[in-house]
Simulated assay, not measured.
Amino acid sequence: MEEIEKGNKGGSEERWKGAVDNLTEMTSNLDSLQKLLVKKAVFVDDETFSKASLTSEQARTIKVLEQRVETLERGLDAAISAAARARAEKRQAEAAQKAAELRAQEITRELENTTKVFELHMEELRAKQDEISKRDGDIKLLEAIIQTLGGKESHSLNG
């Protein structure tokens, strides 16, 4: 039902537009005749009237085409501006991406350096732990020797 109403509405609008166009054409023709009368032309033969009508028709066509050209030029200008904005945004996005990539590389280098430092500390800790384990072993050996010697001394003192 709505489609029928829209169709009727669209047809009605087209008829009104056609009627307005006809009135505009008649106004233009009357203006052309008035201009001829202003030039003291009292009688206009059919040939002159036809030429004036043709000229008037051509002037209207030229005006419509000029308006269409202006509309297309505005559309073209808008498209050019939009393309320029898009290029600028693309350059900004590329610059931001490049900056992000550089930052990511910097962070990766920092992580690699931190990892290397951590590995060096781990190696140092392992070496210290090995040294402590070795000294622990030396201490236990010395304690065993001391106990062994201490045990012999107490046997010889007692005996």
Rank of each mutant, 00 (worst) to 15 (best):
R91F: 02
E106D: 13
E73Y: 04
Q97D: 05
A104W: 03
R74S: 14
L37C: 02
D31E: 13
D136C: 05
K35R: 11
A100N: 06
L72E: 14
G137L: 09
T115M: 08
A78M: 10
E94L: 09
A88T: 06
Q34C: 04
L65V: 07
R135Q: 09
V69D: 10
H121Q: 15
A95Y: 04
A86C: 03
E106Q: 15
V64W: 03
K63P: 03
R135S: 06
L125C: 07
L72P: 02
K152A: 07
Q34S: 11
V117I: 14
E112A: 12
A100C: 03
R103M: 06
A52H: 04
E101Y: 01
F43M: 05
K152R: 12
E66R: 11
E47T: 10
E57L: 10
F43D: 07
A88C: 03
A127W: 01
A95F: 02
T148M: 05
A104G: 05
L125G: 06
D31A: 01
A59S: 14
K90H: 11
E123L: 09
K140Y: 08
K90V: 01
Q92M: 07
S56Y: 00
Q58S: 08
A59N: 11
A83V: 10
K40T: 05
A95I: 01
A86G: 09
K40N: 15
K152W: 02
K63M: 08
F43E: 09
I145R: 15
Q34F: 05
L142E: 10
A93F: 00
H121P: 03
S50R: 09
K152P: 02
V44I: 15
T108K: 14
S32F: 01
E101C: 00
E70C: 04
A59V: 08
D45C: 06
A59R: 07
A93T: 05
K128V: 09
D31Q: 05
R68H: 13
V69K: 14
L125S: 08
I62W: 00
A100S: 11
K51N: 09
A59G: 11
G137S: 11
L149Y: 06
R109Q: 15
T71A: 14
L54Y: 05
Q92N: 11
Q34T: 08
E73H: 11
L141P: 02
I145V: 08
K116M: 12
Q58G: 00
R91P: 01
V64T: 12
L54E: 12
A144H: 07
